[in-house]
Design a protein around this nucleic acid. Structure first.
Length: 462
RNA sequence: GGUGAGGUGGCAGAGCGGUUAUGCGUUCGCCUGCAAAGCGAAUCUAUAGGGGUUCGAAUCCCUUCCUCACCUCCA
């Protein structure tokens, strides 16, 4: 498959059978929001796709659990910083498990990798890339000739942009902290004095530890290109002398009314909030509805649009498992092979989830069309369902299933309703329908029979 | 100011030199005891403006305008 590489500014073929991915995770000082979710969903689908093709994926996603923002927030709340970060790590897993995100192979935390971080900083000092100053240990940007290669920035331009904080103790305005001296907690002993790591070094240390010196894909949100990923490159490549990753993949921002979600604008939509209203499947569909590299604009209208699509998926699934129509499977076999190849080739070509979704919905619509004409046979359903489920698996979509017992009970109720309907006792029949409804079961009355489906309960669904 | 990514029908969104992608929406119909869901048909001939290259441009080049992101923490 080919993916656009931010560093090389062109698409690159991924051929290896072992695919090591490092995704920059969140700094755990607050609830995760939909912007985080988009990046994580994109990488989750990527990983699922690669695994479905038989690749071995080693997926590492970190938590930055020591940082100034965590410390500040903790002090406002009057709790220990590590207690705060633990709380948000717990929340992270609650949210993202609910979103049906596969757990990474490793979820390393900065605080659990101090020895690796200290060792890496020491190597940078020893090789002359870092120096000890009054407030901490700094990386000397001017020593790294290729600085700016990822973000396409020249160091002159960076200096010209007068937004860099002036710090008298640094040798150069562009230098950034590897280690910040601190006498207060959280702090750790180091050869240079008690303190805590700077922002970028934990990712260098942990990616080296878990994925080695030149893994396949390094990713994150677009906003991490500078300075985070640029600095990771500087730190890691200074000691390894080889490209940190073969490919850099960056996910576009989620905006609201065209503007990026941010604390200062107060337009954050938390994952828990959106999840409570729309559920995991609608959010996942929304997040992959456009090409990953572009921004997507959050709106209730678009969520609503994806809700409608999700209902079509649920319908298609139940039409298949309850199929008993008469008809030939020729047409479906043709459509199926088209959809399969369109789905895969879309993802092969720079992970175009938008087009892959088109192929998926083409299949969904074909299933519903055939079911509507009462010609969905068991043969067709058997032919289609495994591919349908393959796509769902890759996209991380989960239709609500029912137990055999529920199935039996519902069938009983439907039979009662049918009996009442044939006697034209519609009021009583509708009462049963309402009872079934209360269990989130929707009846789909076809010409000669009634099919039913279990709907995901979605609060926003009127 | 610098750097990068963009501007496609009411909305979303592909295509990135050569059949009016597609989806949602809207309208009308079918189905139904009524619904719901689904299906069918119709609707919209779009490519920011202006130049140019070409037999042919949404796609390439120039130019103007606009938007967003990054340059400070950010997924």
């Amino acid at each position: 498959m080919r993916i656009y590489d931010t560093l090389g500014t062109k698409e690159k073929e991924i051929t290896s059978n072992l695919i090591r991915i490092y995704l920059c995770g969140v700094t755990v000082y607050d609830e995760s929001h939909i912007g985080h979710a988009r990046t994580i969903i994109i990488f989750d689908v990527l990983r699922r796709y690669l695994e479905s093709k038989g690749s071995h994926v080693k997926f590492v996603q970190n938590f930055t659990d020591v940082d100034d923002k965590i410390i500040n927030r903790a002090s406002t709340e009057g709790v220990h910083p590590l207690e705060l970060s633990k709380r948000y790590i717990d929340h992270y897993f609650e949210d993202f498990d609910s979103l049906n995100i596969m757990r990474a192979t490793e979820h390393p935390k900065a605080t659990e990798h101090m020895s690796e971080i200290i060792e890496l900083i020491q190597r940078l000092i020893d090789s002359g890339y870092a120096y000890i100053a009054l407030n901490g240990v700094y990386y000397s940007v001017s020593k790294f000739n290729e600085y700016g290669k990822l973000s396409k920035r020249k160091t002159e331009d960076l200096i010209a942009g007068a937004r860099i904080a002036v710090d008298e103790t640094k040798n150069d305005a562009l230098d950034f902290a590897l280690w910040k001296f601190s006498e207060t907690e959280p702090n750790w002993p180091s050869p240079w004095g008690k303190g805590r790591p700077g922002w970028h070094i934990e990712c260098s240390a942990m990616s080296l530890k878990y994925l080695g010196e030149d893994f396949e894909i390094h990713g994150g949100g677009r906003d991490l290109i500078f300075p985070h990923h640029e600095n990771e490159i500087a730190q890691t490549e200074a000691v390894t002398n080889k490209p940190l990753a073969k490919l850099w993949m960056h996910v576009g921002m989620v905006t609201i009314n065209g503007e990026k979600m941010s604390k200062s604008l107060g337009n954050i939509k938390s994952v828990r909030h959106v999840l409570a209203n729309w559920g995991p499947n609608v959010i996942r569909l929304f997040c992959i509805s456009g090409h990953y590299s572009k921004a997507i604009d959050y709106s209730e209208d678009l969520l609503k649009e994806n809700l409608v699509k999700w209902r079509q998926v649920e319908t298609a699934y139940y039409e298949m498992i309850m199929s008993e129509g008469q008809g030939s499977s020729k047409e479906m076999a043709q459509i199926l092979s088209e959809c399969n190849s369109e789905f895969d080739s879309a993802l092969e070509s720079d992970f175009n989830t938008s087009l892959a979704l088109n192929a998926f919905f083409k299949l969904v619509k074909a299933i519903n069309r055939i079911a509507a004409s009462d010609s969905m046979t068991k043969t067709i359903a058997d032919l289609v369902i495994s591919d349908f489920e393959r796509m769902c698996q890759i996209l991380g979509l989960q239709v609500q299933k029912v137990t055999e017992r529920q199935r039996f009970e519902i069938t009983e109720m439907i039979n009662q309703r049918e009996a009442l309907r044939s006697q034209k006792k519609f009021q009583e029949a509708d009462k049963i329908r309402d009872q079934i409804h209360a269990q989130n079961i929707v009846l789909l009355d076809h010409k000669n029979r009634t099919v039913w489906m279990k709907k995901e309960k979605i609060l926003a669904d009127p």
